[in-house]
Amino acid sequence: MQKRIGVLAVQGAFAEHINILNKLGVEAFEIRQKSDLYHGTMEGIILPGGESTVMGKLLRELEMFEDLKTAIEDGLPVLGTCAGLILLAKSISNDKSRYFGTMDIKVKRNAYGRQLGSFHTISEFKGIGDIPMTFIRAPYIEEVAKDQDVKILAEIDGHIVAARQRNMLVTSFHPELTSDYRVHQYFLEKVSSLSLL
């Protein structure tokens, strides 16, 4: 049966994720308001790149926040890229805001400075190999909680840029901006299939 994955589409680069999911033979649907959460099954969700402040605000005001938080806590597979990573983080070192806070990581927002600090590189992602990584005003993970089951999947210059904890996979770069779909495949195979067992 074809997998069905929701992509949060209140703001940001959600179309790119949907495009990749479709190319991988997965049915993707946009989540713009609460009723979208309940149109059929959802076997996973992607929180895309964009502005975390905007997404966090719209999630709350469109009354999706609590339902999604509960679903993620209950094991809904989730891939968070850049802003999506910020939404999942338990703590943000340079911002008072908190969003879902379901993942035991501490992140730094805009960690590489302004747009002039944005960069592209190729680096290793554990279990996949070398992949292209595009960082746009990116955050990074400062630390992961030691006594928790957080696995570090990629690091650049000593900073964690990808990690996984149970049903949650996060990257501080944008796999959706390249034509390399291996992070999405990893999410579909390793993360979302696990939770269905």
């Binding site: 680069a13 790149g49 964009g50 502005e51 944005s118 746009i136 901006l177």
Partner: peptide
């Protein structure tokens, strides 16, 4: 060039926004 790609990508992140 790579800088131009990165700059186009920032605009991608602004989509659907005000």
């Amino acid at each position: 060039n790579q800088r131009y790609e990165l700059n186009k990508n920032l605009a991608q992140m602004l989509k659907g926004g005000v």
